[in-house]
Simulated assay, not measured.
Amino acid sequence: MEVYADYAATTPVKQQVIDKMMNIYSTHYGNPSSIHSIGRDARKYLDESRHIVAKELNAKSSEVIFTSGATESNNTAIKGIVYAHQHKGKHIITSKIEHHSVLHVFEQLEKEGFDVTYLDVDEEGLVSLKQLQNALTDETILVSIMFVNNEIGTVQPMYDIEEVINNSNALFHVDAVQAIGHLEVNFHEFNIDAMSITAHKFGGPKGVGALLLKEGTALKFSQLGGEQETKRRAGTENVPQIVGLAEALKLANQYRDDNNVHLMNLKNQFLVSLQERSIPFELNGSMTDTTGHIVNLYFPFIDVETMLTLLDLSNVYVSSGSACTAGSTTPSHVLAAMYSNEDRAQHSVRFSFNEAMTEQEIKYIATEIHKIYHKFKEEV
């Protein structure tokens, strides 16, 4: 049996999405910026997709900017807001467990002279609302907090965070990449100023995403060369992939509730299966403030590299954390921020599930981990 359990890294493209995209590739091939009929035909699908994305996320069509993915969206939002508002102050805030497409931008801005506060998290991966409130000053121009952590699945209290930020002059950016398809993401209800998503995390194609930017929010755009995306992002829009993003988002929201029930059942079954086999492990993160599709576990009896290798040999495909840090020997910055035990990150594995997974696959993973444990338990 082969079991892919690395869906937080990427998901397979759904067949309905492929069908939609192939129709555009083969028939509606015009440049959406061209004024002739073939160009206008492509523009129609671009506009329809923008409307779908806006509707699914409770935003205005004018607030949707299509990008190449979350990394571009995060970079554009953070740098664009900071550069546009630096005359008001030079203090910015994020957490220590953000994705590197956020953290590395903040680190670069810090080198440029901006004052950065990196919020701590507790052992469940939750930011402290009190620390956030105390960190905010009249000089704070931006706060960037991810909705769902990509390594441990912890869900941040968005309503509470938004309420704290609203009592300041700071703008609010949210990396919502891992929330789509698992939580209701309501752009206007959360009162977010900028939000990033990417299609390949919820059954869409790689290489396409969106930045939602609240109407009236000043942002300095860096990509120049044309007047696409209403002069906000130069470059010919990738219409087939944008259509794929819109279709994948619609499907993710349509089946979200049923999928969540299935995913939580799989997660609980996985943990119970490990317990029944007397495999020593501890959960990294929260069991309550979490999504069903990510579970990160600490296995004290084996290092993560060996575990991943042995699981791979058993045709079980998982990871140690973000795919964007693959090949790095640096321990997970997320787990390092959560736990004082420096060794924990070296013995932790992320499993991430999908609605297509079965109970049989979950049991197979637990069985293979059990075999590995018996090989190494004498060394504990």
Results as ranks from 00 to 15, higher is better:
293 H>L: 06
258 D>A: 15
78 I>Y: 05
25 Y>G: 01
151 E>P: 00
111 K>Y: 09
308 L>Q: 13
56 E>S: 08
8 A>R: 02
116 V>S: 02
10 T>L: 11
6 D>I: 04
237 E>C: 11
38 I>N: 12
166 N>S: 15
178 Q>V: 01
312 D>N: 15
238 N>C: 06
198 T>S: 15
159 Y>S: 12
123 E>S: 15
111 K>R: 12
79 K>R: 15
294 I>E: 04
345 A>P: 01
186 N>R: 09
99 H>V: 10
56 E>K: 14
122 D>C: 04
212 L>T: 03
31 N>W: 08
136 L>Q: 01
106 F>W: 04
350 R>D: 07
163 E>L: 12
28 H>Q: 09
179 A>W: 00
185 V>Y: 02
235 G>Q: 04
3 V>P: 07
201 K>C: 01
213 L>I: 09
378 E>W: 13
313 L>C: 12
164 V>A: 04
220 K>L: 13
195 M>K: 01
240 P>E: 11
120 D>R: 12
76 T>S: 14
143 V>F: 01
380 V>S: 14
16 Q>Y: 05
252 A>I: 01
358 T>K: 09
204 G>P: 00
365 I>H: 07
218 A>L: 12
277 R>M: 10
113 G>H: 04
201 K>D: 02
30 G>K: 08
128 S>T: 02
211 L>F: 09
201 K>V: 04
70 A>W: 00
189 E>V: 02
360 Q>K: 15
260 N>Y: 00
100 H>L: 14
287 M>L: 14
352 S>K: 08
161 I>G: 01
138 D>Y: 09
84 A>H: 01
131 Q>S: 14
284 N>P: 00
364 Y>N: 12
377 K>R: 14
110 E>R: 14
122 D>E: 10
92 I>Q: 05
295 V>R: 02
162 E>D: 11
263 L>V: 03
352 S>A: 09
107 E>M: 10
43 R>I: 00
129 L>D: 10
158 M>R: 05
11 T>A: 08
25 Y>C: 10
148 V>E: 04
293 H>K: 10
168 S>Y: 06
159 Y>W: 10
180 I>C: 03
160 D>W: 00
221 F>K: 10
152 I>N: 15
32 P>Q: 02
142 L>K: 08
216 G>K: 13
